[in-house]
């Protein structure tokens, strides 16, 4: 009786140990397999990487729906976790179909149906390597600007004057509030290795932080939080206050938006 009881308990403990070991190995395997990839560029409307990894069932229907063969299920050697849809702009960029067939084909919602307008897609953010961009060297390339489907908003060409004896540069600038990350610029860039590349915004975007106040941009005066102590009730003859200047000295330059 006692012996069989002990045997049962030992068996149970062994079973639990095997389950625990198996579970740990499995969890470790999962951590490797399903590790969110910062390098992967996802189809338009893709959820944030962690949610995408959990929601995408890896069926490849988006891949099949894409008329340009842009999307691929990641292979073992790719930057994205195996089996998940991604694209490599320098091979084939996303041509931003207005009917977003990849997203329509997605059965799970990993490509969110909330994306109605392809121009609102944020697959990535184009980043320029000014050291290899031809325009930044002084040539009139501007290819990225011309191929950009949201040109004038996602990429603008800015005039950049130099010293007197040199002609001005006409350089591309990317604006994150309009760039969809489609990668047409990266695909078209004529340099040997693309000087403009689409990357996961999380990889390249900084954040100013709320403790910096760009006073010249805000509508309220920079002193908005400063309240002078209540003046004690006046005793004796009333004194007329000297009128204080509206802005601090030296602020004018900033307020007028003049870059010194």
């Amino acid at each position: 009786m006692q012996a069989s009881r002990r045997e049962f308990l030992t068996k149970a403990a062994q079973g639990a140990a095997v389950a625990a070991c198996g579970g740990l190995i499995w969890a470790q395997l999962l951590r490797q397999e399903a590790a969110a990839s910062v390098l992967a560029l996802r189809p338009p409307g893709a959820l944030a990487e962690r949610d995408f990894a959990a929601t995408c069932i890896k069926c490849g229907q988006c891949v099949q729906a894409c008329p340009y063969d842009t999307l691929r299920l990641a292979r073992a050697e790719d930057d994205a976790p195996i089996g998940t849809p991604h694209f490599v702009p320098r091979d084939i960029p996303c041509y931003m179909c207005s009917d977003i067939p990849c997203q329509v084909a997605c059965p799970t919602g990993a490509l969110s149906p909330e994306l109605k307008n392809i121009a609102k897609a944020r697959m990535g953010l184009a980043v320029i390597d000014t050291e290899s961009c031809l325009s930044w060297q002084g040539l009139r390339c501007e290819v990225c600007y011309r191929v950009c489907p949201v040109k004038g908003e996602a990429i603008t060409i800015e005039n950049r004057s130099r010293v007197v004896s040199k002609h001005a540069l006409f350089v591309p600038h990317v604006h994150s509030q309009a760039c969809t990350g489609c990668g047409m610029c990266e695909d078209a860039c004529p340099t040997e290795k693309a000087a403009i590349r689409v990357l996961n915004p999380a990889l390249v975007q900084g954040r100013i932080g709320s403790h910096y106040r760009l006073g010249w941009l805000s509508d309220t005066p920079i002193t908005q939080d400063f309240k002078p102590p209540e003046a004690p009730p006046a005793v004796g003859p009333a004194v007329t206050e000297p009128s204080a200047p509206k802005t601090a000295p030296g602020m004018d330059v900033l307020n007028q938006g003049i870059d010194p």
Partner: peptide, 14 residues
């Protein structure tokens, strides 16, 4: 259980 703990489909991924 692992799907719930790890936040991804545990068997599907492997």
């Amino acid at each position: 259980v692992l799907s719930a703990l790890m936040g991804v489909a545990a068997f599907e991924w492997v």
